[in-house]
């Protein structure tokens, strides 16, 4: 039984891959290809994704038709930018491996690294 988090990720991936709006029924039929899953489960997860602001929806007949708010790339980029902008003063949010080198510095360092034999493996 996949966790809700995994399902969120799977459903978002499906919706991103369609590149068009889809109903709960559409997603369900797609998912049933490789797993046993209930209509209500998919509906709950999609409703949750809507509340989180990842999906927008409009009614069509008796059901909703869902659509992603942003492309996957735009969503990731936006979230990362937000996190990184904050972590400038807030290194504790994520401890990151972010250093910056000017092109001259990195050229000098690349040269220094060449002197050290990469010990066979790399």
């Amino acid at each position: 039984m996949p966790t809700l988090g995994e399902l969120e990720s799977t459903i978002m991936d499906r919706l991103w891959s369609y590149r068009r709006p889809a109903s709960v029924r559409d997603v369900l039929e797609d998912l049933r290809g490789d797993r046993e899953i209930a209509y209500t489960t998919v509906m709950t997860v999609m409703d949750k994704l809507h509340k989180k602001g990842l999906l927008k929806r409009h009614p069509q007949g008796k059901a909703y038709i869902y659509e992603t708010v942003l492309s996957k790339e735009a969503y990731t980029a936006g979230q990362m930018r937000e996190t990184l902008a904050r972590s400038e003063n807030q290194a504790a949010t994520l401890v990151h491996f972010l250093e910056r080198l000017t092109p001259e510095e990195s050229a000098a360092l690349e040269a220094a690294l060449q002197v050290f034999p990469p010990r066979g493996r790399s």
Binding site: G5, E8, T76
Partner: peptide, 12 residues
């Protein structure tokens, strides 16, 4: 912030 970021990682 961590919770927000973890939510994003769970999705993408």
């Amino acid at each position: 912030e961590r919770r927000r970021h973890a939510e994003m990682l769970a999705v993408v």
